[in-house]
Simulated scan of single mutants.
Amino acid sequence: MRRITRITTVGIASAALALTATACGGKTSSDAGSDGQAKAAIAYDIGGRGDQSFNDAAYAGLKKAEDELNIKGAEAEPSEGEGDADKVQRLTELARSGNNPVIGVGFAYAPAIEKVAKKYPKTTFGLIDDTSKTGPNIANLVFNEEQGSYLAGVAAAKASKTGTVGFIGGVEVPLIKKFEAGFVQGVTDTNPKAKVLKQYLTQPPNFDGFAKPDLGKAAAQGMLDKNADVIYAAAGLAGSGAIEATATAGKWAIGVDSDQYNQKGLAKYKAKILTSVTKDVSDSVFNLIESVKKGKPQSGEVRYGLDKDGVGLANSNPEYQKMTDLIAAVEKAKADIIAGKIKVKTAP
């Protein structure tokens, strides 16, 4: 297996000097490095690799492609306070160096991918969590987050002893409001008397709510002080702070995106991570890379829902596995959503 190449924003300009420029038409799916190996790249969202959540799930897909498809992977990290121009430069260099596909992890890459994809029509671009920008060589990898969050709401309502639970959103944007909507609906459908505390860490254009654990920690502490005993955070790296505060208080935390019970960086708190709402970001990345390698690249909307385990609820914690009433309620809710008996809201 080849080592994944990491490209930081600071180093991207100097890296460009070492790259062989290609025509604006980009490279075809069969193009590869000088050693004949196919290449693929991901550009990380706020928080970068190591967030124990969204970005790490995308990395897992790239790693799987390296292991199983003989892909040479490249990674590009974001920089604090960057704008669309920085993302355009990053994606351009990744495409120019022959990576195909080039995947932007998160909706913040939408404007940049729209621009760069037009310059490299033979390169496939993956855009995770956004359908606002489309094109013949853009694959919009999206998820029914509200469905997984509904199941988390059912679990939270069943696990709570105080009748008060909390939802922490990283940044108040439509995507995260899907998480809120599903969670609140799941809680109230399960226990109409339950109280749901809600807080967003930042408002756009400030995206620190996805990047700073201290913000999540403070928000969770505030909810704990108000008697919440189950807290669900959809906040990227900031969510790790919420997990820390909640677990330290001996209450239940619910993770997001990855199965956070199994994340090494959160091992200290895993006993109190009840479950996690999972998004199969890993397989979405792998599947896109595989489609390009096979010469049949995905394009348009590629949706991952509960019906195909594209979203779900993790059951890694042994304590969760003992909660038979909770599990039964979650399984019934899952079946009813798939059958169309429960319509989950996508906005609060």
Rank of each mutant, 00 (worst) to 15 (best):
A156C: 15
M1N: 10
K217Y: 14
I113R: 02
K332A: 15
D307L: 00
T248F: 06
K293N: 14
E77P: 03
P136F: 03
V196I: 12
I7W: 14
G340H: 07
A219D: 14
N262L: 09
A32F: 01
S97D: 14
D257A: 11
E68S: 14
T324M: 05
D280E: 12
L94Q: 09
D259R: 00
G169L: 08
G47F: 11
G310V: 10
F183E: 02
L175C: 12
F210P: 14
G163P: 01
A60T: 07
A219H: 11
N100I: 06
L19G: 09
N70H: 05
A156L: 14
G239T: 00
G163D: 09
T275F: 03
I273C: 05
Y269N: 13
A267Q: 15
E244D: 07
G135C: 05
M323P: 04
N70R: 03
A234E: 07
Y120H: 03
G236M: 07
G310I: 06
S29D: 13
G295M: 00
P318L: 05
T8H: 01
R96E: 04
Q185E: 11
G239L: 01
K251A: 05
R6P: 05
W252K: 03
N55Q: 12
K217C: 04
G312F: 02
A16Q: 12
L201Y: 01
L313V: 08
T248N: 06
K341N: 15
K226E: 09
T324A: 12
K293A: 12
A60R: 08
I12S: 10
G11I: 03
T188Y: 02
A15P: 00
L69E: 02
D309T: 05
K72S: 13
D208G: 04
K118A: 14
I138K: 03
